[in-house]
Amino acid sequence: MIKLENIRKSYTTGFNTLEVLKGIDLEILEGEFVSIMGSSGSGKSTLLNILGILDAYDQGNYYLGDILVKNLSQTQAARLRNQHLGFVFQSFNLLAFKSAWENVALPLYYQKIPRAERRERALKYLDRVGLLDWADHLPTQLSGGQQQRVAIARSLITQPRMILADEPTGALDSVTSHEIIKLFKEVNEEGITVVLVTHEHDIAEMTNRTIFLKDGLIDLE
């Protein structure tokens, strides 16, 4: 489902050019549950951002299904993200002034789906992550674990092919982290591809496949 061919990415700050990804070849199949590990600064987030079409790469090819993701306009990228991808962030990134269900429904807003239908679908996914009773609460009224569940519900609502999560448990205690990973596992068991970045071995062990990044290259699997 995903194919990366010799992906390179460098950042230029001032006169220094920092090569972060030095030729990544990677294939992820439909329905895989993949974790990415590596030391800090090894390029995990950079790789995930490229997979998520949040950032552009310098060289190589990225195929999402049979779409070559390259030189897209902002609008095209936004459409692809909205239709095929779901995101879960370390810091949840819920909109503070919107209730839980409104946050969950936000991706549907950009699909121009009417409000009533958005609400109905959002409630379904909130129920799915066990937070139906919290639908009308603001993010600040929820615990970290609950916020991340809301974020997962939000990532699922468009029924994406792949969910990308950058250290989704980075801000949570270990008990809550395990609950969240369990939720990801359930999601994956329904056939959705899940790719997550983590620092924790026990979390990586719960995934089906772990990719180690080192110095901008895939070190071992």
Binding site: Q74, T75, A78, R81, N93, P107, Y110
Partner: peptide
């Protein structure tokens, strides 16, 4: 900025 970034990640087009 961050909110707008999140919206964009979730599919907001520049136009919207």
């Amino acid at each position: 900025t961050r909110e707008i970034g999140v919206r964009k990640a979730l599919g907001a087009t520049p136009r919207s």
